[in-house]
Design a protein around this nucleic acid. Structure first.
Length: 321
RNA sequence: GGCGGGAUAGCUCAGUAGGUAGAGCAGCGGACUGAAAAUCCGCGUGUCCCCAGUUCAAUUCUGGGUCCCGCCA
């Protein structure tokens, strides 16, 4: 083991699709390992969105500190770059205090950005510019990108408005193409080693069982005041077009309150979108390297899993891999 | 009981001036560099309700039947 490896901060990371049981496991591991949780969830960062995002309760947060939960208002854009900065900061503080940082959550893009440190600090964004560009038809966006950055144009599908917009935004704001930025950054990250040694624990479950759990969970959310939460956000003046309100459940319940969708349709739509999301998560997570995968429907229950995992984690934390 | 409308993919429906059919949604797979619970891409064999008739050929036309939905009794 080299000097560089010894200096790395060891982390535990729990990944897997929504409703597979990441939160429960993260709490058990935090108790067993003297850990604190770093939430890797693009929706739990927002305040006032509790029921729909399955946040842990205040009591639990008092017992086990949670980071990157409730750090933005629903109308404050929160980006993957904000996450990476926040996570790095939280991890330093947890580590300095002598506790174990446990990353847990279902947003694969955030894990990806964090591990690769793939977002350049210097790259800006500008929501006003996005709004202006958004008014143009996609073919026009694609044509412009073809002009300024043909390589990005080849990489981005002409129908993928969000990515066309981002590539154009980078060019407009910096005068240099996304391709140039990414090439430089790839060269840089090639020489700089990661500051962290991450032990990935992956939870899976056959879709048949996972889908049942998703259905049950969404039902519980609807019975626990999900509709009222969305009503409250709307009454407070939050624009339904905000990114924070585009998640499943939220967007359906907005339509329910507008009267363009029934309660039952909103529930069914939420379940469907959540299932589709679980599939997208799997597409991401199965590409992650060095993950210890556990099928939670086959490993003899959560408790058996915890007692198996604790020694493995301790081993990793001691730097023995 | 009478009159009309309908029966096609898991669902909602389009279509074939007769040559065995296709959209949206769902489902499945994939992509992803500052919106990521977002955004985007790919994948479509199904007794075209049943029986008979006309025809070289019927999911399509004709007759009968079954079921569903309206309206009238």
């Amino acid at each position: 083991m080299s000097m560089a490896d010894e200096k790395k901060i060891p982390l535990i990371a729990i990944i897997g699709p929504t409703a597979v049981g990441k939160t429960a496991l993260s709490l058990s591991l935090a108790r067993a390992l003297k850990g604190e949780i770093v939430s890797v969830d693009s929706r739990q960062v927002y305040r006032y969105m509790d029921v729909g995002t399955d946040k842990v309760s205040r009591e639990v947060c008092r017992e086990i500190p949670h980071h990157l939960i409730n750090v933005a208002d629903p109308d404050q854009p929160f980006s993957a770059a904000d996450f990476v900065r926040g996570a790095q900061d939280a991890i330093s503080r947890i580590h300095a205090r002598g506790f174990v940082p446990i990353l847990a959550g279902g947003t694969p893009f955030y894990f990806h950005a964090f591990e690769r440190e793939s977002l350049c600090e210097e790259l800006p964004s500008d929501w006003g510019l996005r709004e202006r560009l958004e008014k143009l038809p996609k073919v026009e966006l694609a044509r412009r990108l073809e002009d300024v950055d043909p390589e990005s144009a080849r990489r981005v599908h002409p129908n993928d408005g969000v990515r066309l917009l981002r590539a154009l935004e980078i060019f407009e704001l910096t005068g240099r193409t996304a391709t140039q930025w990414y090439t430089e950054q790839a060269a840089r990250s090639g020489v700089r080693a990661s500051r962290y040694a991450i032990f990935y624990i992956g939870l899976t479950q056959p879709y048949e069982i996972l889908y049942e759990r998703i259905e049950r969970r969404v039902r519980e959310q609807f019975e626990s005041g999900y509709a009222e939460e969305v009503k409250w956000l709307l009454d407070r003046g939050y624009d339904p077009r905000l990114p924070a309100l585009q998640g499943f459940g939220y967007r359906e319940l907005v339509r329910y309150h507008e009267g363009t969708m029934t309660y039952e349709e909103a529930l069914a739509g939420d379940v469907r979108s959540t299932k589709a999301y679980a599939r997208r998560q799997r597409t991401w997570f199965t590409k992650f390297e060095h993950v210890r995968w556990f099928d939670v429907s086959q490993c003899g229950g959560a408790e058996a899993l915890v007692s198996e995992l604790v020694p493995m984690c301790e081993c990793h934390l001691a730097g023995e891999e």
